[in-house]
Design a protein around this nucleic acid. Structure first.
Lengths: 202, 202
DNA sequence: TAATATATACCGACCGGTCGGTCGGTATAA
DNA sequence: TTATACCGACCGACCGGTCGGTATATATTA
């Protein structure tokens, strides 16, 4: 029998296992027994910490938030220009893609389930609102400082979010012609080009 | 008992029903019996036309392609500029969103399942490659005619695809501040701004 | 310090509802 | 008469969840 661990550690262990299994097989095809096996624990252990499969998934959304972009929120430093901050974000995306691309596969699952379940929708939206707000902050700063055109910050934030989500293409499909890093780099260039008041020749 | 229909009509009827149920409940939660009921037929009828649930879903991908953007491919007329053609695409997206927004919800399901199943991945990618190729055609035309910067056409095509996919935000979540039409319009503006050689003041 | 009691963490065999798929049959068309 | 289309009761594998139990940690008492 596994030695008793502090609640937080054990739950983190379970969530990590759930993340692996669910991103690989999808929520519905992921059996609780798969997660049990991946975690190296037992059904009892998991049901001791979570009420059920859905509860576990909801916890996974929060877990995703805290784990995936730990450096995201600290990137909005005062000394950097808005454009540079957005480039930093792009760099973070590339970094995460290289080390933990399952992060993006998880997102696909979030969206799919958000479409079917109100609680998942609510939690997912809360998560994305935070990211959108962060983007808006940067965009508004860029506008204020005369760096960017006077665009609608929320629309533009969703725009950038969507462009970043495009990385999913490279997580799910096989693209032999271009790679994710290239996509993100060129994309952020294009976006900044569209936002900039004076056009840079690349 | 339902009157025998021509194969194509009956299959289309089944696929329409499957589309409705699957976009609402997701593939796994959609029961064959749900589809049976929605179609107003019987299990026997559906299993007569399709080998099983997965086979039905694969057929749905093809069905999606032919049904959703009937006007997409005809939009690339020679007389219109590349920018205008992209604007036309955006207009199509808005039109589809208004009349059949489930189309975009279906895409989320495609991506989710493509991540888990090779056949679904293959078919989905084939579908998207066609769209990407179409976009590339327009982008290359824009470059050739001195309208656009000399960007990588494939990356840019995926970029635009991603921006359009952003409409899913409005299909799945509740955005009280902005709407899908606005998003698409401003987005295509931003994108064209980024691509354009001479900057238009909006 | 050891013995005892209580609470918490963990185990895994088992249950029972669900749902994809089957198949013997009937209706319709050729 | 034959072939095709359609019907729907039924089967059984599968899997989320349960629960009686054991192990470990913590508190209490002698």
């Amino acid at each position: 029998m596994a030695v008793n661990l502090p609640k937080e550690e054990r739950q983190s262990q379970i969530l990590d296992a759930a993340m692996k299994v669910i991103t690989r097989k999808g929520f519905s095809n992921a059996r609780m027994d798969d997660i049990v096996q991946e975690a190296g624990l037992s059904k009892g252990a998991i049901y001791h910490h979570y009420e059920g499969k859905k509860d576990l998934f909801l916890a996974l959304i929060d877990h995703w938030e805290t784990q995936t972009f730990p450096d995201f929120y600290s990137r909005n430093g005062k000394e950097r220009s808005a454009a540079d901050t957005l480039k930093d974000f792009a760099g973070e995306i590339i970094k995460v893609f290289k080390t933990r691309s399952y992060v993006f596969q998880a997102e696909v699952e979030f969206w799919s389930l958000a479409n079917q379940d109100n609680e998942v929708r609510k939690r997912s939206q809360e998560l994305y609102e935070k990211i959108i707000n962060l983007f808006e902050l940067v965009i508004n700063k860029g506008i204020r400082q005369g760096e960017f055109l006077k665009v609608d910050s929320r629309i533009t934030a969703i725009y950038i979010l969507s462009v970043f989500q495009g990385i999913n293409w490279f997580c799910i499909f096989n693209d032999k012609k271009i790679n994710a890093k290239n996509y993100i780099q060129k994309s952020i260039e294009l976006t900044l080009n569209g936002l900039a008041i004076t056009k840079e020749t690349s």
